[in-house]
Amino acid sequence: MIETRDLTHRYGPSEGRGEPETESSADPDAPASPVALRDVSLTVPDGEFLVLAGANGSGKSTLVRHFNGLLTPTTGEVLVDDDPVGDDLVAARTRVGMVFQEPRDCFVAATVARDVAFGPENLGLDRAEIDRRVERALAAVNMAGRGDERIDRLSGGEQERVAVAGALAMEPSHLVLDEPFTGLDESARASVLAHLRDLHREGTGIVLVTHDLRDVLDPADRLVILADGAVAVDGAPDAAVDALADLPVRRPERC
């Protein structure tokens, strides 16, 4: 279970990229630093398929980066399985696996199996266990037997699946994907989504960050929409979609 309590995140003055809204600071002499998240309280139960939507700059990516301690809250706290994330980063990062936008920038190794093994190797597991995990993770994304292939020769959809396998090899209870469909064509998008549905069916919690809601509401248990760093909508997908009218997200075609 992932839980945020009154989570507020303010970027340092030098990090103010994009256009998050600025807020007057308590100290009048300090430069106003942009607020990315304000008072977000959210609980993600185990096994839930959550779609997290919102426009660019709404704070989606910032929010999920708190789930495993990649960012530290300015105020508020984040708990994974009731433990504060900062107390045991290794536990948080193994329980919450993360796949980033532009996977091809995030690979560590040149070949598939070597890259998928990177996480388990960092945990110091023995070779037999690492091999078992790599095999299982690759099988889960339909890449079994392709461990020796070079990653840069794979298609975009295959690269995305290898990135998912890299996160799965940590055997997380939640898998967070930040805009996984960027740059994928329709068939690759469909295949990645199908694998996510399978993982969800087998019990892995999925947090899917996207600004494009086509097809993703059907498997989702819940839809959360962020606007200006705060939760604007939170509920069952069908009910939540009705609240979308004024929000800048791409609406599903069937609605």
Binding site: D88, V90, A91, T94, N122, L123, G124, L125
Partner: peptide, 8 residues
């Protein structure tokens, strides 16, 4: 995993 042994 014995997380305390992992030195991040």
């Amino acid at each position: 995993t014995a997380t305390e042994d992992v030195d991040l």
